[in-house]
Structure formats: structure tokens, C-alpha cells
């Protein structure tokens, strides 16, 4: 039976065409634009690396945004990972009501970050928000804050909202990972005299290596992209204190029409993420 050699490629064609048109070509074009000064209309002026040099030398807001993304990565890696792992270990035991607990911690993850932002912006409301009100009830009125308007703490307040939303996904991944560890292994360790803490660090954690790769890569990539929740809760303020690369890119481009600069910011995001994305993609695509 003779088969046409090109026929299999027809199956890939629709995906290839759409993907190239929507993702690949625009991405390449953005890189190209980042070497120009352009207001979105009129002529583009080639400026070489000037957009990039300006960002790193004379643009304090860009540096704040960059720092905030790095802080977000650290917060994600430390808090989101530990809380979700803890929850997964707790919820991997079988006990009454497990399904309900799992739902409570997972469902926020299914909500849009816009909805989460709206909810938490109200929680932090200085006049009638839950957090200040509960301090009042507890007689700790002195601790009341203007949470999202205080530059020093605003970013961390937004992160708490993101944490509330974000533990569900890694928790489920850890739960799936825990299911693959044979019970006999931890039992054997216990018989050999290892306490549950020891068994956790010497058996469970190493066995979760693969899950950790996935969780860490996804969380770092997500931290580089943080946008929706910032946009809704603080809009990058107060005085740019919660600006991230994504929110700064957006305002520079669509509010100030600095298309060249906006492309340069997006390209910096991309270049930083490549160090995570490429190894992770290779790891995912490896042939077992």
C-alpha cells in the first residue's frame, strides 16, 4: 500500500497555521519592534538597544517592576509550595470529610483572578473591609491599616490574595504525586525506626522530585507573568509600588503609546523566562 508522504502533515497544518499567526509571528515581531521608537502610528525610528538601555539605567519604575517580579517568585516558591505541599500531605490521608476540605482549597483556583482581586480588594477596604473590621472586633483597632495604599506592604497584601487563589493547583499536583508513592516504602522506613518527619524528608520528598519540577516551573513562570490580580487590586500603585513587568508593559503600551518601550519590556520578560521555559519544555518532551 503506497501512502502519500505529505498527508500526515495535513493533520498538523491547522494547528501550525493558527499557532504561527497568533503566537509565533507576533512574538518575533515584538522582538523586532523593541529596537524601535514608535508611537503606534507614523514612522518607526530605529534606536538600536536604546529602549533596553533606558529601561535598565534611567527607569526606576521598570527596576521596581523587575524587583517585584523577583519578590513574587520567591514568595511563590516559599509560601505557595509549602502551603500546598502541607495541604496535599494532610489531604492524602483518608478521613471523613476529605472531599469537602479538598474542594475548599481547590475551588479558589478555578476562579478568575479578576474575581479574586475584586473579593480581596473589598477584604482590604480601609473603611469597611473584613480585615480592618476584624481588628476592631478583636479590640486591636491600632493594627488597622490602609493596606493597599501603603507602598511598603501593598505587594505582600496582593500576594496573600494570590496565595489564597493559587494553592489549589500545586496541591492537586502534589496529591497526584503522592498517590504514586508505594505505601510499602514509607512503611518500611517506619519499621526501620524512622519517625514520620524523617520518613517525609528521606522518602516522600525525594519521590516527589518530578512533581516538584512541574510545580516550581509553573509557579516561576506564573510569577513572571503576574498581571490580572495587580491590575484589579492596585493598578500598579500606590506610586508604582506594586508595578510588575506585565502591568508596566501594559500601561506603557496602551496608556502612553510607547510601543517600542512596551515591546522591550515584554522582551525582557521573555528573555528572563527562557531560562526556565527551555529546560522545562525539554524535560516535559523527553522520551522515556
Amino acid at each position: 500500500m503506497k501512502k502519500k508522504k505529505w498527508k500526515p502533515y495535513l493533520f498538523i497544518l491547522p494547528a501550525f497555521v493558527i499557532f504561527s499567526a497568533v503566537v509565533v509571528i507576533p512574538t518575533v515581531y515584538s522582538l523586532y519592534l523593541s529596537f524601535f521608537s514608535w508611537k503606534g502610528v507614523g514612522a518607526k525610528e530605529f534606536v538600536g538597544l536604546k529602549n533596553y538601555i533606558n529601561l535598565f539605567t534611567v527607569d526606576p519604575v521598570f527596576l521596581t517592576a523587575l524587583r517585584n517580579n523577583l519578590i513574587w517568585i520567591v514568595l511563590n516558591v516559599v509560601f505557595t509550595v509549602s502551603v500546598s505541599l502541607l495541604l496535599a500531605v494532610a489531604l492524602s490521608k483518608s478521613f471523613k470529610g476529605r472531599v469537602v476540605y479538598r474542594a475548599i482549597f481547590y475551588i479558589p483556583y478555578m476562579l478568575s483572578l479578576v474575581v479574586v482581586g475584586v473579593i480581596w480588594k473589598w477584604m482590604y477596604n480601609p473603611n469597611m473591609g473584613f480585615i480592618n473590621e476584624i481588628f476592631d472586633v478583636a479590640g486591636l483597632g491600632g493594627l488597622k491599616q490602609n493596606w493597599l495604599s501603603t507602598p511598603k506592604i501593598a505587594l505582600y497584601c496582593v500576594f496573600i490574595a494570590a496565595l489564597w487563589q493559587g494553592v489549589g493547583q500545586p496541591m492537586v499536583l502534589f496529591l497526584a504525586g503522592l498517590q504514586t508513592i508505594p505505601v510499602s516504602l514509607t512503611e518500611a522506613a517506619r519499621i526501620d525506626g524512622a519517625g514520620s518527619v524523617k520518613a517525609f524528608f528521606y522518602i516522600t520528598l525525594p519521590m516527589l522530585k518530578e512533581t516538584f519540577v512541574i510545580v516550581l516551573a509553573t509557579l516561576i513562570i506564573a510569577a513572571m507573568k503576574v498581571y490580572d490580580i495587580i491590575k484589579v487590586m492596585t493598578g500598579g500603585g500606590p506610586i508604582n509600588a506594586t508595578e510588575t513587568l506585565a502591568s508596566y508593559m501594559y500601561s506603557q503600551t496602551f496608556s502612553y503609546s510607547n510601543f517600542g518601550k512596551g515591546s522591550a519590556i515584554a522582551s525582557v520578560m521573555l528573555l528572563m523566562m527562557v531560562f526556565i521555559i527551555v529546560p522545562y519544555v525539554m524535560y516535559t518532551a523527553r522520551d522515556e
Binding site: 503566537v23 501594559y250 525539554m282
Partner: peptide
């Protein structure tokens, strides 16, 4: 496969302006 997978992780910001 890798080609398509990259698209899953690229920042959408890269495509915003041209789109």
C-alpha cells in the same frame, strides 16, 4: 511538540502589541 509547547509558556505580552 516542543514548538507547540513553547507557546503554552510564552508570556502573552509578547503578542499583545502586534495582535
Amino acid at each position: 511538540f516542543i514548538f507547540f509547547l513553547l507557546g503554552m509558556m510564552l508570556p502573552h505580552q509578547m503578542a499583545l502589541i502586534p495582535l
